[in-house]
Simulated scan of single mutants.
Amino acid sequence: MTLKEDKKESPLLYILTGATSGLVADSLMHPIDTIRARIQIEKVGKSQYRGTFHALNHIIKNEGASYLYKGFPIVATATVPAHALYFLGYEYSKSLMIDKLGPKWGDSAISHFTAGFIADALGSLVWVPMDIIKQRLQVQTNTQKLNPNQTYYKGSFHAAKVIMKEEGVKGFYRGFMPALLTYGPFVGIYFSVYEKCKSFISSTLHYSPDQYLPIPYQLGSGFFAGAFAAAVTCPLDVIKTRIQVQRSTEKQIYKGMFDSFKTILKEEGPKAFVKGMGTRILWIAPGNALTIASYEQLKYLFKGII
């Protein structure tokens, strides 16, 4: 597939294709995300789940398959604007750096990392409140046992109402910096690796720079980049998740990234920082592969229209 570069791509193209591709991927991968959150909040030595598939079986058997989609309504609502901002931020930042720095530096790994970080910062304005609501619903069965007197969330929008009442707007941005410091590097690494994979495959197959790769290569590049970035940033994700599932009405065990790192290391050891890594990769790698392949294909299909 060859793209004509006779006109500059419209920001609306990035917004619509980004929003659609994000919704498709999140819809399919939400159950794995629920399992990841459950595993990561458990302390080393006190785990009821022996791994991803044991957790899957345990949740279905004891709580029902529908529990795997706890928090999904808020995800479906928020992922559309979040992915729109995300892809708009990435494409615009990348284009701006190429214009200002030239192809050599503007299309380098450092530039892709920077554009990815900016993309995540924009998307996080929507993603962090979504994550707070989603993760608290996903782990509610676990946290309810520890705090039986806390208000039970009946669903995504009830949870949002309770958080606003109990914690105010600040409650929706609990762990914003840990989230940014987790997913900013993740997205930066992801896009750096993804662009390198695409470049390597294109040169191997003798594709010109204005050609889109076939879907299997887009999926493969997205999967590899997602798996690599997910593994590298797993320790940061454990810290972020522990902070975000805390309520302001509870005793604050984790008071910030550095404090959380020290507390987890002291109480549980280094192994705690790789809890849920396999599940995180199973959630992120296919999700990123689906998102980026959908995005690339939709961008190609709608380029001449939008």
Score class of each variant (00 low, 15 high):
residue 3 L to T: 07
residue 4 K to V: 06
residue 9 E to T: 13
residue 13 L to W: 02
residue 14 Y to T: 01
residue 14 Y to E: 03
residue 15 I to D: 00
residue 20 T to F: 05
residue 20 T to M: 05
residue 21 S to A: 09
residue 26 D to G: 11
residue 27 S to W: 13
residue 30 H to A: 15
residue 31 P to E: 06
residue 31 P to Y: 04
residue 32 I to Y: 14
residue 32 I to P: 11
residue 33 D to L: 15
residue 33 D to W: 14
residue 37 A to W: 12
residue 40 Q to L: 11
residue 44 V to C: 09
residue 46 K to F: 11
residue 47 S to W: 08
residue 50 R to N: 13
residue 51 G to V: 00
residue 51 G to Q: 03
residue 55 A to N: 10
residue 56 L to N: 13
residue 56 L to Y: 14
residue 56 L to W: 15
residue 62 N to P: 03
residue 62 N to T: 12
residue 64 G to M: 06
residue 65 A to W: 11
residue 66 S to N: 14
residue 66 S to W: 13
residue 68 L to M: 03
residue 68 L to P: 05
residue 68 L to D: 03
residue 69 Y to M: 13
residue 76 A to E: 07
residue 76 A to Y: 02
residue 79 T to F: 10
residue 83 H to Q: 09
residue 91 E to D: 07
residue 95 S to K: 11
residue 96 L to S: 10
residue 98 I to G: 02
residue 101 L to C: 08
residue 102 G to P: 06
residue 102 G to N: 05
residue 105 W to M: 15
residue 108 S to G: 05
residue 109 A to M: 14
residue 109 A to N: 14
residue 116 G to W: 06
residue 117 F to K: 05
residue 117 F to E: 05
residue 117 F to A: 10
residue 118 I to N: 00
residue 118 I to Q: 04
residue 122 L to H: 03
residue 125 L to Y: 01
residue 126 V to K: 01
residue 129 P to N: 02
residue 130 M to S: 12
residue 133 I to K: 02
residue 134 K to A: 11
residue 135 Q to C: 09
residue 136 R to N: 14
residue 137 L to K: 08
residue 145 K to A: 15
residue 146 L to Q: 15
residue 146 L to Y: 10
residue 151 T to Q: 13
residue 152 Y to E: 14
residue 153 Y to K: 06
residue 155 G to L: 04
residue 155 G to M: 04
residue 156 S to F: 00
residue 157 F to Q: 02
residue 159 A to T: 01
residue 160 A to I: 01
residue 160 A to L: 07
residue 166 E to S: 11
residue 167 E to G: 09
residue 168 G to M: 06
residue 173 Y to P: 01
residue 173 Y to L: 03
residue 175 G to F: 02
residue 180 L to C: 05
residue 180 L to R: 06
residue 185 P to M: 04
residue 186 F to P: 00
residue 187 V to Y: 14
residue 191 F to L: 10
residue 193 V to N: 08
residue 193 V to S: 09
residue 193 V to Y: 10
residue 194 Y to I: 08
residue 198 K to P: 04
residue 201 I to V: 12
residue 206 H to T: 12
residue 211 Q to H: 07
residue 219 L to C: 04
residue 220 G to R: 08
residue 220 G to L: 15
residue 221 S to E: 01
residue 221 S to P: 03
residue 224 F to W: 15
residue 229 A to Y: 00
residue 231 A to N: 11
residue 232 V to K: 10
residue 234 C to K: 11
residue 234 C to Q: 14
residue 239 I to D: 01
residue 239 I to S: 04
residue 246 Q to V: 09
residue 248 S to Q: 15
residue 251 K to N: 12
residue 256 G to Q: 06
residue 260 S to I: 08
residue 262 K to F: 14
residue 264 I to R: 00
residue 264 I to Y: 03
residue 264 I to V: 09
residue 264 I to E: 01
residue 265 L to Y: 13
residue 268 E to F: 01
residue 269 G to A: 08
residue 272 A to R: 07
residue 272 A to P: 00
residue 272 A to Y: 00
residue 275 K to L: 14
residue 278 G to K: 05
residue 281 I to K: 07
residue 282 L to K: 07
residue 282 L to N: 07
residue 282 L to C: 10
residue 283 W to L: 13
residue 290 L to G: 00
residue 291 T to E: 10
residue 293 A to R: 02
residue 295 Y to S: 04
residue 295 Y to P: 04
residue 297 Q to A: 11
residue 298 L to F: 12
residue 305 I to S: 12
residue 306 I to R: 06
residue 306 I to H: 05
